[in-house]
Design a protein around this nucleic acid. Structure first.
Lengths: 401, 401
DNA sequence: ACCGTCCCTGAATCATTGG
DNA sequence: TCCAATGATTCAGGGACGG
């Protein structure tokens, strides 16, 4: 089957396809938000569509008709992934139970992300739901393993375990009492909650089409439930992310969208399929932890907020004074107090700090350092271990308080 | 309203309560898994209940009847949290839409956790859903803020921004080209996906009752949607986690469960509530369980080893002097320095300590306390936040170093 | 009651500067 | 010339406000 991008209502386009030809379907219909979605900033082209239906039943009828049409073209071992948000996800899943059967439900995938915030009397919505349904008992499913989390005790996992006659499992040892390794471990099996960063407003991957999904999300779905050379269908292809993902992963694809602009965009994207780099995707959020452990430990004892991306400031005090922030820096190992104060002062001045606090790891002797004329807004406080050390020394030398 | 634990079908017990008396409801009904849940408790008592209904409609009818009874006793500003798993969550939410109304839906909370077992041919289920519904337009909702993401330029968002005539936002500067501050920052509003570790199977908190929920989860719910002194209802209280959480957070509670064993267990637990800290943070480090967070944070900055089960000593210094240990105690919140020193001295003397160090959380004024004649081996060191506070006050009052 | 307009918001990127 | 640091940008929101 050749790759195809169709313009039109997917109901009509699907009718032209033969039965049992598709191996995986990713369905990202308009949400039931009752708003018009537009995005005009990036490209000159303005993309827009309406999420407006008269009622929930009308929306569901619209969707059910199309899901049924999709089911007709799915192979017996094919799977469907339907992407929805909180407004209608429950009704959609009930509908999917009707179409595919309650027992054909495989997984409820929660896509979580962090997002710009707002103030409202509810929790900040930061997830969307993807329902996975199979078209038959025997469906394609590839095990995917992710790296172990950092808190896992890897040494222990690598040890061999056996069940003793009483049914308890225990780690086994050889005659010398040494542990026995268990061979290679594959990692943690993929769970049904996926923490994938939202497609950032500034990402190059953005096409200017509203509702664009991150490539990584769709790629993971294709890898999970299809093989190379199989056929992927997206009846609401929008900016064409699914087709691009299929192309990059050597799958065939059929993309359908009602909007000529979307179809044009998809074709354009496919001519030069780009997977953009994302620092947070590639390296994980841990990569942004710039502060050494001993600094974090000290800051954890204070009512502050950590600052990860400023080389002069390590934290901000929770409360302001006279509308100005109080900034904090911890002297680094091997760093002179002189240098620490300089960096703190520079960074603090830029932020119009009310006060700048340096937590010193060594004795602070302004006279010796020639720093006696520090501005009064710079405060040097000795760290707890340092103070204890001094007190112990005093005790040893027999000097009274 | 007094605290109550009732044994019986909640439908009948709820009928005995007056209308509009409850401020928050946490509902954790049996799941529709078609299995019998059992778990052998430490006391060899077997708790069991049947998760078996003939059909989904029967299950939903059972639940709807009870949710309606719950709604009757809810105050207008009250909220309901219904905890369900993936087997029936969509039908339950449809039912909640019917009872409360589609517009009374507030949030879909996703509780995620990590699990180890491997399910075949599906994603590893590692989330449960909690639906939050309000009983009226004006419901109790307390804003909760969490730390910013590591990837955020925190120092940057202190700056004021404005939108220009073209609708683009940009940072604003004054005539001198200096930034303008934007006021205090509170943190990121709590999102609707909660990553809370699943109850550690070895945690003390574990009572042996099936489907027990982490205290942290329930505590967060109570903090989110109720105030101190209000009344919390749990019609399927099971092992009584909700009642324990309410007790710890100074809320009143009504707990109901059909099982006499569950009611007995709840009452037992309320007599001696144990609260475990998040397990991921200090896996296998039992010592931390007895110490409050702020004490652990302070000790983490010192070269010490934590001490378990000693009410006078929190830690031992890594190095000895003259073959004798150096013992450490952190003054507790609400504890007088006098009392802290006394306990430390008693415990330290038993260990033949070379020195005893008290880390004070408040100003230490020996003369005022009549403690001037302390033995020289007792050292009082002021904690870092305290020292910073004093320096800031000095600055505010314009007193030089 | 219902618009459109304007504001505030934090994440995570791109863009520019600085050594 | 090339990183590293940090400044600039913009969004599948949502409320307040004024007409």
């Amino acid at each position: 089957m050749l790759n195809q991008i169709h313009q039109g209502d997917c109901l009509e386009v699907l009718a032209t396809l033969p039965e049992d030809c598709v191996d995986l379907v990713y369905l990202d219909p308009p949400f039931f938000t009752q708003q018009t979605q537009t995005l005009r900033s990036k490209a000159l082209q303005v993309y827009a569509f309406e999420d407006s239906w008269d009622s929930m039943p009308a929306y569901l009828a619209f969707l059910k008709e199309r899901v049924c049409a999709v089911q007709r073209v799915m192979k017996p071992h094919a799977t469907l992934f339907l992407h929805c948000d909180r407004h209608a996800s429950h009704y959609i899943r009930v509908m999917l139970d009707e179409v595919f059967g309650y027992d054909r439900f495989v997984s409820e995938i929660i896509w979580t992300y962090r997002r710009w915030s707002h103030s409202t009397r509810a929790l900040l919505p930061s997830h969307q739901t993807i329902f996975m349904y199979a078209n038959g008992d025997d469906y394609t499913f590839n095990d995917i393993f992710l790296p172990y989390s950092e808190t896992t005790n890897l040494d222990q996992i690598l040890q061999k375990r056996e069940r003793n006659p009483h049914g308890k499992t225990a780690y086994v040892h050889d005659e010398q009492g040494e542990i026995i390794l268990n061979g290679e471990k594959k990692g943690v099996p993929l769970s049904d909650t996926w923490d994938i960063p939202y497609l950032n407003p500034k990402a190059k991957e953005r096409t200017g089409y509203p509702t664009q999904k991150p490539l990584l999300l769709v790629e993971r779905i294709l890898q999970l439930a299809s093989h190379e050379g199989t056929l992927v269908l997206d009846p609401f292809c929008g900016s064409g992310t699914t087709c691009v993902a299929a192309h990059l992963l050597q799958r065939h694809y059929i993309g359908i969208d009602q909007s000529p602009a979307a179809v044009h965009l998809t074709r354009q994207r496919l001519e030069n399929p780009i997977r953009t780099r994302s620092a947070v995707l590639e390296q994980g959020r841990e990569a942004y932890h710039n502060l050494p452990d001993y600094v974090v430990n000290i800051l954890n004892t204070l009512p502050v907020k950590l600052v990860q991306r400023n080389s002069g400031i390590d934290a901000l005090y929770d409360s302001y004074v006279e509308g100005k922030p109080i900034v904090i820096r911890v002297q680094r190992e091997g760093e002179s107090i002189h240098h620490a104060i300089q960096k703190l002062q520079q960074a603090g001045a830029k932020k119009h700090a009310y006060a700048m606090i340096l937590i010193a790891q060594e004795r602070y002797q302004p006279m010796l350092e020639g720093l006696a004329e520090l501005p009064s807004s710079v405060i040097v406080v000795e760290s707890l271990p340092l103070m204890i050390q001094q007190q112990l020394q005093r005790l040893e030398e027999g000097i009274p308080y």
